[in-house]
């Protein structure tokens, strides 16, 4: 087996697949049957497994908020986009987290400087302390943000800074992860997942020393969610 030797590469692959075929049925009819079974399975709608959850906006918002708080996120609600920069500035001031940060470029157009914030639209670097992102979906069942990587929403902004502020328009709420995937199929480029789909549920955490919970392992110490009711 070698990376640069195509014959050796093919040999490892063929050995694994042919041993599987020897067990599962190697004749062409058996293989064809398995291919059909796989194709049929890919097209099959699987029965839902989530508990029965509200799928109206108010119900999803309430569930999302309480689940997110259980995962140690903080949440504030505002009525529209116009209130967002001030709400973010108020949170940062209250926690003493400064006024500088990095923002997902897709959100750069909001009037941040009017609220006294200096945010740069780019990917995050090690030294950045604040990252502001939007979200592709917000999953009510588990209080989870779903972020799709793109030039306008680099993956590092929600990862490297110590504080992650996420803007969550109510129209982005979905009841379950299945519903989020369905929306991705409709709205993401090509209907396919981008390089990185990140599901985020609260600040990073570890319990690896004496099973004692510590927030802020490698990712953010705090996640603050701004729920935008009218957007």
């Amino acid at each position: 087996m070698s990376l640069t030797d195509p014959t050796a590469r093919a040999a490892a692959r063929d050995s694994i697949l042919s041993r599987l075929r020897d067990t599962l049925g190697a004749d062409s009819a058996a293989v064809a049957r398995r291919r059909e079974a796989v194709d049929a399975r890919l097209g099959k709608v699987v029965a839902p497994t989530a508990p029965p959850l509200a799928d109206d906006t108010a119900g999803m918002l309430a569930r999302f908020r309480s689940e997110a708080e259980q995962m140690a996120s903080t949440v504030v609600e505002v009525d529209g986009w116009g209130e967002v920069p001030a709400a973010v500035a108020a949170y940062l001031a209250e926690k003493g987290l400064g006024t500088r940060g990095v923002i997902a470029p897709e959100l750069a157009a909001l009037p941040w400087s009017t609220a006294g914030l200096a945010v740069e639209p780019r990917e995050a670097r090690d030294a950045d302390l604040l990252g502001i992102t939007g979200c592709f979906c917000a999953i009510a069942e588990t209080g989870t943000l779903m972020l799709l990587s793109a030039p306008g929403s680099p993956a590092t902004v929600s990862l490297l800074p110590e504080t992650h502020v996420a803007l969550v328009p109510a129209s982005r709420l979905v009841p379950t992860m299945e519903a989020a995937f369905a929306r991705m199929g409709e709205q993401a480029p090509g209907g396919q997942p981008p390089r990185a789909v990140n599901f985020i549920s609260g600040p990073s955490r570890t319990g690896d020393i004496e099973q004692t919970l510590v927030l802020g392992a490698h990712g953010p110490y705090r996640v603050h969610l701004v729920l935008i009711r009218g957007a």
């Binding site: 995962m71 990917e123 990587s149 993956a155 390089r195 789909v197 990140n198 599901f199 985020i200 990073s204």
Partner: peptide, 22 residues
């Protein structure tokens, strides 16, 4: 846990326009 803090789904490589990623 109801869900782990992070679930990452990785597909393919960084596009030319992407600002980060493998």
């Amino acid at each position: 846990q109801t869900i782990s803090n992070y679930v990452s789904l990785l597909t393919g490589v960084k596009s030319e326009a992407d600002r980060d990623g493998a």
